[in-house]
Design a protein around this nucleic acid. Structure first.
Length: 430
RNA sequence: UCCUCGGUGGCUCAAUUGGCAGAGCGGGUGGCUGUUAACCACUAGGUUGUAGGUUCGAGUCCUACCCGAGGAGCCA
């Protein structure tokens, strides 16, 4: 007899198998039990009939509680009355452990209660579906970049200096000196791109922002490609192609999960080339046309992002931001000093920014001047300046926040469900 | 740091003008051979976030504090 996983149960139709898992729910009609078992790959219904099992196995059904661990031996049968299309006609049940008072019941719960029990909440079907989609998104990003010759070169988590001000950095002790948790792998990515041409990093990043909104985590995962000889247009092409690929892979491989979370995929199916590309000036005009009081030179707030992203059916790319609001390494538009060659990509349906990036300044003298203007400690950036001394070339890149992409693709109301254990302003447990 | 809302059985919520703290789920007991968050009957379960105050009487009104949610500011 084979031990089977529920996701492959159709391969065992008519055969006897052993399933190992946890009790999801149960129902009884006297001499008949319906036992829903999950094993991490899916959920299946086992039918336990008093006539077909030994007395011990039948009585066990009575004492089984939600999330008790068990094994079931029985025959796999197709049955249209069973959720999932197949059920197991049980022959024998063995209990591994009876779970006492599992706190998450099949009825509704509040956010606080669920977040306090996040380690158990992960067992529910909705969380299961969302996190499987997250895995597909990550896999798609990596496949996309790998197939285009980008080399994965992960950048450090401990960093010696702030790249853009220390207020949003988490500080930690490093054998007596101060170091910070990375908020972006970008500067290191630039060094890697000068060595390998096309590179990317993928890892956690940390922002000590006191933001308490549906789109902020203090610890989040970012995938950041960086390529030598790419200009702003190449960069926008790459971002567009990557987002399309990711959405298509999720639609293709995770349709069951999208259905579980009741995601209407109509809008996802519209995600195709070309994405509208507008300048910052044009985006400001959209806001003004909608009656929003917005001053040129400001960054878009959460509400502004929502308005702009709702204006388009597809993701929209916004480029050429005012240079004053962008980082020291951003290249200025040769045609207009007041603009920088940055680009953001906003997800549709009101989700806002999921990608930020642009073309980097490659000129040695300008980078040195900017570091001075931004009051950055020059010695901490000597290695970065070296990149401009030794064979500098135009280059570009961007960062995509994984949790925001998951949030959009799953159409969630908050990013807290997009990562197994979210870290937020007032939440670091469990 | 600020604004708004909230805190009542294990969970989700109700409680009229300040007047007997209640329901569903979950737990327990019993019933049912095709259930789909099954259903039916019975049953146990409460210092209403904390500390004070007003009142004949406070879950309800007042003050302070604690905790949470949503948002603002802030945010490569």
């Amino acid at each position: 007899m084979k031990t089977a996983y529920i996701e492959n149960i159709s391969d065992y139709s008519g055969k006897e198998v052993k399933i190992r898992g946890w009790l999801y729910n149960k129902r009884t009609s006297g001499k008949l039990w319906f036992i829903l078992v999950r094993d991490g790959t899916g959920i299946i219904q086992a039918v336990v009939s008093k006539a077909d099992v030994d007395e011990d196995s039948f009585n066990m059904c009575d004492i089984l509680t939600q999330e008790s661990s068990l094994t079931i031996i029985g025959t796999v049968n197709p049955d249209r009355r069973a959720p999932g299309g197949y059920e197991i006609q049980a022959k024998k049940i063995e209990i591994i452990q009876i779970a006492k008072d599992y706190p998450i019941t099949p009825k509704e719960h509040g956010t606080t209660f669920l977040m306090d029990h996040r380690h158990l909440w992960l067992r529910s079907t909705r969380q299961y579906a969302i996190l499987r989609i997250r895995q597909e998104i990550i896999k798609a990003c990596r496949n996309f970049l790998d197939e285009r010759g980008f080399i994965l070169l992960d950048t450090p988590i401990f960093t010696p200096a702030a790249c853009e001000g220390t207020t949003t950095l988490f500080e930690t002790d490093y054998f007596g000196s101060k170091v910070y948790l990375t908020q972006s792998g970008q500067l290191y990515n630039e060094a890697c791109a000068m060595a390998f041409g096309k590179v990317y990093c993928f890892g956690p990043t940390f922002r000590a922002e006191k933001s308490k909104t549906r789109r902020h985590l203090t610890e989040f995962w970012m995938i950041e490609p960086e390529a030598a000889f790419f200009d702003l247009d190449d960069n926008m092409d790459l971002a567009e192609d990557m987002v399309i690929y990711v959405v298509q892979q999720v639609l293709k491989n995770k349709s069951k999960e999208l259905k579980t979370i009741e995601r209407d995929t109509t809008n996802l199916e519209k995600v195709s080339k070309p994405f509208p590309r507008i300048t910052y000036d044009e985006a400001v005009k959209i806001l003004h046309d909608k009656g929003v009081d917005f001053d040129w030179g400001n960054d878009f707030g959460g509400a502004d992002e929502t308005i702009i992203s709702k204006h388009f059916e597809k993701p929209v790319i916004i480029h050429r931001f005012p240079s004053e609001m962008k980082a020291f390494y951003m290249k200025r538009d040769p045609e207009n000093e007041k603009l920088s060659l940055g680009c953001d990509l906003f997800a549709p349906e009101g989700y806002g920014e999921i990608i930020g990036g642009g073309q980097r300044e490659e000129n040695l003298e300008i980078v040195e001047k900017r570091i001075k203007e931004f009051n950055l400690p020059r010695d901490a950036f000597e290695w970065y300046i070296d990149l401009r001394k030794y064979g500098t070339v135009p280059h570009s890149g961007f960062g995509m926040g994984i949790e925001r992409v998951v949030s959009w693709i799953c159409k969630l109301s908050h990013v807290r469900e997009t990562i197994p254990f979210p870290r937020m302003l007032y939440r670091v447990t469990p």
